[in-house]
Each structure stands twice: as structure tokens, then as C-alpha cells.
Design a protein around this nucleic acid. Structure first.
Length: 551
RNA sequence: AGGGGUGUCGCCAAGCGGUAAGGCACCAGACUUUGACUCUGGCAUUUCGUAGGUUCAAAUCCUGCCACCCCUGCCA
């Protein structure tokens, strides 16, 4: 069950206060991705935060594409982002593009020029960097800093008209080259880029920078609380400067929170791209990827992702959430929802020697023992079945409750069987186990004369459907201590294990994205990419917890 | 001449001067036709990075130190 309650956090406290003091009548938030890649679980944290915060206080949330840099962006990404946000279960109030506001941004830039708050600078990129100073020393003023309003206005207009090549001129805010905050040292607010924009085509050849564009976008949409990540804290004075100097009517407040980090995974777009490009994974939607598309293909549900995002909380401290937290929420969500069926991943044949040859019977078994509403299904049982290799040991350790010579176990939903004989190959490995069954122990018969310690799962050998199982381990072995360049060396070479086994005949028609619990194994999802009519492919979403310790 | 942040249980995280919530993980036991689930109990009381100070009372206020993160793109 999804718990929609969110705990207290500092942003919610701000909202509560702002509503109480009537600073705002209604709160409006936004989720503003740049359409230059796929969304991942870190974005989900932001999405859940923004949408649910507004929703809790009867406010609104916009989806806005922050598309101010045409060379990086593409409509392919706007489509996938829209789809992912919807899939996560959210409806936006308005769907906007930063590029919808290019005219107004241009006009506001002209206003800055007229106020003497912006100027056209001819310094090269290298010169600007040199003039900017560094962390310890103040910058130097550009020789172009004191051009007249008229000249600035004319040059900016000519920039817009396309009279200059990329990089020849920029528009800068005139603030303070000696500011201890480097973002305030006359930041560039417009650059020239003769590039085709996914939304505005070739209408513009100058594009606003994030620091200038974002506050204007927020103000135009009357965003009350503009939530972003920690690295923008230093930009807040500039954000406020733009709101003020551009004379925006609305005064949105920027609030920063910590990004999501998860153990044994990487979240940066650059690293995820490297995993795709270097073929460590089979695409952005590989089930091992932390992308929304990857999690979806793995079998995670929107409910589980939302619960996870709520439960990890929101704060300003850099933290790394244990991946087990995510696993917990998908187990919790699927517990009552997923039908519980049987699959044998590493088959070992069992012959029930006292069961008549050629005979078979149908057993009735519940689909989810904890959720009677899910009903029953028929399962065929016959003389030969497959069990898990792990469920048989010739010489078992202490406290091994499964099958071993002389021991009796229950076959889930069927009978007690007792191991009498082992057929081995020439290396001495068991390749077949011979058992006898006791007809009076049939499941549901009410038989109570003997108890058995273990119940194991199985599939009927004649009707079982061959299936492929894909088991995943974390993509990244250790959480990086060293910097970036060595991260590909930390990729887990064994993050994918492919097994060929069997599922019960009922799963012959399993459809992509259907989720099942395989008895005693875990939760699995039918893969959208590799499953075929003949052979289903199951991705293991997460294993079941286990308190069994060998030996 | 630097600036901006953060430090509360193994991992997240509440707490906003009145005497340390919750979740994950873990441990013990009960139950069990999943070694699952569920249930019960245990998991910060010389304790909130640290050293002082203020106060009847401090994780909360003040001061100093320490550690870690972010900032020198015509990216966002």
C-alpha cells in the first residue's frame, strides 16, 4: 500500500509559513528539466517533491522545458520526459518551454541595457575567463564595460540580427567584478549561437543563459517556490538580481535541496551516457540503469518510486541513500499485487517413482496466499518435475530444510516427497533425483499426521514453459572514492546473469510488463525487449529477503 | 580575498529553548504450505562534529575550532 503522507521537511515548512503569513495565496511550483537526456530517479525525487508539495496545499505545478541551449536539446527528449512524468503519475498544470519566453527575455535585456545594467562585451572567452579573476582574487573590469546605452542597444540589436559570428560578442550584466561571489562578476546573460532550436527553429541566433533565463521563466509563470539543487545556492543572489533589475512583477523564491545519491549507482548524465556508449548496458532503458525508463523495464512501479521519494526526505545535506531502501518499496508495493507463481531458474529433474507413468493431474493453487481476491489457478503435476538445484543437497549442512537423501519436503501446492536415490553423472554430480510421494499429503487435504520443515517450489516437467531469467547486480561495485576517470573501472563485470529455466505453463502467455512473484525467488517483470511468443524473458526486479544462512 | 553550504543511530531523516519521531538495515523470538510476509521485543540517557559560553533547562541561542561538499562554462 502506498503511503501518501510525506514527512516534514524544510521546504514544506517554508510553504506553510508563506501561506500562514499570506505571502502567497496559492503556491505554484515547477519541474524544469533541460530536454537533453533521459530522466532518472534523481529527477523523480524532484518531480515528487514539486508536484506533491503543490498538491498538498492545493497549488499547481508546471512542467517546463528549460531549453535555452539549442545545441544540446532535442524533441526526442521532450517526448520521453513528458512520458516519464506521466508514467510516474503526475499531471502538470501548464506545459511550457523557456523558448516560449524568448521575446520577453529579449525585451527585458533591452530594459537592462537602458538602465545601464547590461553591456555588450567583445572580449574572447579566454579573455573573459582571465578577467574574471579566481577564488582568491577579484576580477578586472572589461574595457567594454562602459559603452554607452545607445551603443550597447545597437550592438545587442545587431547581435540579434545575426551580424556577428558565434563567440564574437556577449551581453553581460553589469554587477560587480570584485564580488566574492564569482557568479556576480558581470555574468554573461546572452551568447551568440547560430544553431537551429528544436522549438524556435532559426528565429534566434542569440540565446539567454540559464542564470538570466530561469528567474524570468519562473516569474512569468508566477512560480512561488523555485526548487533546485544545492549547486545553485551561489546563483541565488544573481537570481534575485535578475528578478529585481528586470522589474518582474512576481518574486519567486529559489530554494535549494540536496540531490539524490544511491549506493552502488551513478546518477550523472555524463556517467550514464558513458555506460551506454561503452556498451556496458544495452541502452538508456537497460534494467540496471537508474533511469526512469530503466526502472520501468526492470519492473519498478510508479507507486514504489513515489513512496521511495517521499520516504528519503528532503534536506540540504549531501547524502547517499542505501539502495536497499529502493528495494524495500518495490517489495512492499508488489507484495499484495503480484500473482505468486513458480519458476525454476536452475533446474534439477526429480522423478517421482511411485507416481504412475503417463498420468497427470491438475492441482488448484491460490494466486496470492495473502490476497484471496486474486483467486486460484490450475497447475499440472506429473511423474517428472523440476526443482531448484539449490533445493537439493546430497550432504546437507545443519539446518538445511530442503531435499536430501532420506528427507521429506512439501512441494508447494502439491504433495510431500521423500528422496530415495540420486542419479549422478561421471563426475559425481547429481543430475536426477528419485523420490516417492505420499498421496494422502495432497495440499488442502487437511493432512496433519506428519510435519515437514521445508516447502520447495517446482514445475511440472511435461508442461513447463522454457523461459529466460535475467538477474541483476549493482552496476557499480564500490561507491567511488576516487574521481571520475576511474569510474568505468568500478563497473561490475557481473551485473547481469542470464539463466535458462522453466516457468509453470500458466505463464506461457505472460505479457511484457506483467509482474510476478516467483515463489521463494523474488519479483520478476516480463521484459519488453527480449520476450518473444515462444519464450518469455523475465527480469528480476528484486529478490525476496532471506534470513537463511548456509552453515 | 575568498564566498556559499552541511554535520542528529550503520544509511536516510524529524526536531525550531522544556529534556532525542519515523523509515531502511540489523539482532532476538513467535507464526508460517515462500528460510517471504506478518507479529513481538531490541537497536542515540555520560547523546545530536567538537570545545567553551548563556540559561532553572541547549541538538535547538552565542563564540571558537574541526571535517566534508559546492563555486573560477559563451552548460544547466
Amino acid at each position: 500500500m502506498e503511503n501518501k503522507q510525506t514527512q516534514s521537511n524544510f521546504i514544506k515548512n517554508i510553504v506553510v509559513e508563506d501561506l500562514k503569513t499570506e505571502k502567497h495565496k496559492e503556491i505554484i511550483t515547477r519541474f524544469p528539466p533541460e530536454p537533453n537526456g533521459y530522466l532518472h530517479i534523481g529527477h523523480a525525487k524532484s518531480i515528487v517533491l514539486n508536484f506533491e508539495l503543490a498538491d498538498e496545499f492545493k497549488g499547481k505545478t508546471n512542467l517546463r522545458f528549460d531549453d535555452t541551449n539549442p545545441v544540446k536539446e532535442d524533441t526526442e527528449y521532450v517526448e520521453s520526459i513528458e512520458a516519464d512524468v506521466k508514467w510516474l503519475g503526475f499531471d502538470w498544470e501548464g506545459l511550457y518551454f523557456a523558448s516560449d519566453y524568448f521575446d520577453e527575455m529579449y525585451d527585458r535585456a533591452v530594459l537592462l541595457i537602458k538602465k545601464g545594467k547590461a553591456y555588450v562585451c567583445d572580449l574572447t572567452a579566454e579573455q573573459i575567463r582571465a578577467y574574471r579573476g579566481n577564488l582568491k582574487e577579484p576580477g578586472k573590469e572589461s574595457p567594454y564595460r562602459n559603452r554607452s546605452v545607445e551603443e550597447n542597444h545597437e550592438l545587442f540589436e545587431r547581435m540579434r540580427k545575426g551580424e556577428f559570428e558565434d563567440g564574437k560578442k556577449v551581453l553581460r550584466a553589469k554587477i560587480d567584478m570584485a564580488s566574492p561571489n564569482i557568479n556576480m562578476r558581470d555574468p554573461i546573460i546572452y551568447r551568440i549561437a547560430h544553431a537551429t532550436h528544436h522549438n524556435t527553429g532559426d528565429r534566434w541566433c542569440i540565446y539567454p543563459m540559464y542564470d538570466y533565463a530561469h528567474p524570468i521563466e519562473d516569474a512569468i509563470e508566477s512560480i512561488t517556490h523555485s526548487i533546485c539543487t544545492l549547486e545553485f545556492e551561489d546563483h541565488r543572489p544573481l537570481y534575485d538580481w535578475v528578478i529585481e533589475e528586470c522589474e518582474m512583477k512576481a518574486k519567486p523564491q529559489q530554494i535549494e535541496f540536496a540531490r539524490l545519491n544511491i549506493t552502488n549507482t551513478v546518477m550523472s548524465k555524463r556517467k550514464l551516457k558513458a555506460l551506454v556508449d561503452e556498451r556496458f548496458v544495452d541502452g538508456w532503458d537497460d534494467p540496471r540503469m537508474p533511469t526512469i525508463a530503466g526502472l520501468r523495464r526492470r519492473g519498478f512501479t510508479p507507486e514504489a518510486i513515489r513512496s521511495f521519494c517521499r520516504e528519503i526526505g528532503v534536506s540540504k545535506s549531501n547524502s547517499t541513500v542505501d539502495a536497499q531502501m529502493l528495494e524495500h518499496f518495490i517489495r512492499e508495493d508488489l507484495l499484495m499485487k503480484a500473482p505468486r507463481t513458480m519458476a525454476v531458474l536452475r533446474p534439477l529433474k526429480v522423478v517421482i517413482t511411485n507416481y504412475p507413468e503417463g498420468q497427470s493431474e491438475l492441482l488448484e493453487i491460490e494466486n496470492n496466499g495473502d490476497n484471496p481476491e486474486m483467486g486460484y489457478r490450475q497447475l499440472s503435476f506429473s511423474r517428472e518435475i523440476y526443482i531448484e538445484q539449490d533445493d537439493f543437497m546430497e550432504e546437507p549442512p545443519k539446518k538445511y530444510f530442503r531435499l536430501f537423501p532420506g528427507n521429506e519436503v512439501r512441494l508447494k501446492g502439491a504433495y510431500f516427497i521423500k528422496c530415495n536415490d540420486i542419479v549422478k553423472d561421471k563426475d559425481g554430480n547429481a543430475i536426477e533425483v528419485h523420490c516417492t510421494y505420499d498421496p494422502q499429503t495432497k495440499s488442502g487435504s487437511g493432512f496433519t499426521e506428519r510435519k515437514v520443515k521445508g516447502t520447495i517450489h517446482w514445475v511440472d516437467a511435461v508442461s513447463a514453459v522454457p523461459a529466460e531469467f535475467r538477474l541483476f547486480e549493482p552496476l557499480i561495485l564500490d561507491d567511488q572514492t576516487e574521481e571520475d576517470k576511474s569510474f568505468l573501472e568500478q563497473v561490475n563485470p557481473n551485473s547481469l546473469e542470464i539463466l535458462q529455466g522453466y516457468v509453470e505453463s500458466n505463464l506461457k502467455t505472460a505479457k511484457p510488463q506483467e509482474k510476478y512473484q516467483f515463489f521463494r525467488h523474488g519479483y520478476f517483470n516480463v521484459d519488453t525487449k527480449y520476450s518473444t511468443e515462444e519464450k518469455p524473458v523475465f527480469n528480476r526486479i528484486v529478490s525476496l529477503k532471506s534470513s537463511y544462512k548456509a552453515e
